[in-house]
Design a protein around this nucleic acid. Structure first.
Lengths: 134, 134
DNA sequence: ATGGATGCAAATATTTTGCATTTTG
DNA sequence: CAAAATGCAAAATATTTGCATCCAT
């Protein structure tokens, strides 16, 4: 059903070698730098597919922009501590917090519960060196 | 510095009598229905001001759209359990969770930490009656 | 060959901004 | 009266979509 195209492999490959959360536009730019004449729309389509299927992680900035990243935790539900400058990330797994969220919703009779949780801050390196690429 | 204009009072007034989280466009439409020839840009400007100052609560939908609401908790830091259909809301205060988030960030050496947490679900009423205004 | 995938450009959707005009303190 | 706020339209942002073409399967 879902095909193994050159473009998709290239997106996957780039994500594989990238540590930080990146925007679709950033990823597209990097792919262009390389060689591929990959289209922006394809990057968006691919990332959406991957994110919806849980294949890659996604966070939303307060601005509404979304960032993507392959996660070590794979498909397992987890959250992120993200550096607001470099996008560097620590994956957070906290069963207790998950249980708490479920509990809160249940107490109020809410069904089909989901939650989002992002922790943002300045990572130790950016705190010292300042934002990257300045 | 910040002036007491007719438009701002009208926005405040509408928020005061509204229970649910609403988009800027929704609020603008309701203000127009009434009488006021208030402009959309003014509604946005006012809501941003209010939200940034903590005067009103704001959540971001997964789509990036933002919703606003006057909160009973006032300026105190809190989170929301929001119905994905009607926008009905329960305010959540959980010092333990706040402390946990701080702790997680501190352990990894992150500074200037902030976090977002939204719990979304279907409220008891919408679960029974289905989405409103259908 | 055939339906999914791509690339481009145009369309969406939401929020912001430039600027002339009005209004508040 | 000066600074701030407004309204409108245009701009900016981020993402999605229409469609003709291309290419995995």
């Amino acid at each position: 059903m879902t095909r193994r195209t050159r473009q998709r492999l290239q997106v996957l490959e780039l994500l594989e070698e990238t540590e930080e959360f990146c925007s679709a536009q950033q990823l597209h730019a990097r792919l262009r730098e390389r060689d591929t004449g990959i289209g922006l729309a394809t990057v968006y389509r691919t990332l959406r597919l991957l994110a919806d299927s849980g294949e890659v992680g996604r966070v939303r900035l307060p601005s509404g922009e979304q960032l993507f990243r392959r996660c070590d935790s794979g498909r397992r539900h987890h959250h992120h501590l993200v550096c607001r400058f470099c996008g560097g990330t620590v994956e957070i797994v906290s069963p207790a917090t998950e249980a708490w969220a479920e509990e809160v919703a249940a107490v109020h009779g809410y069904l089909d519960v989901t939650h989002t949780l992002e922790i943002m801050g300045t990572c130790p390196r950016c705190a010292v060196n300042g934002p990257p690429a300045e």
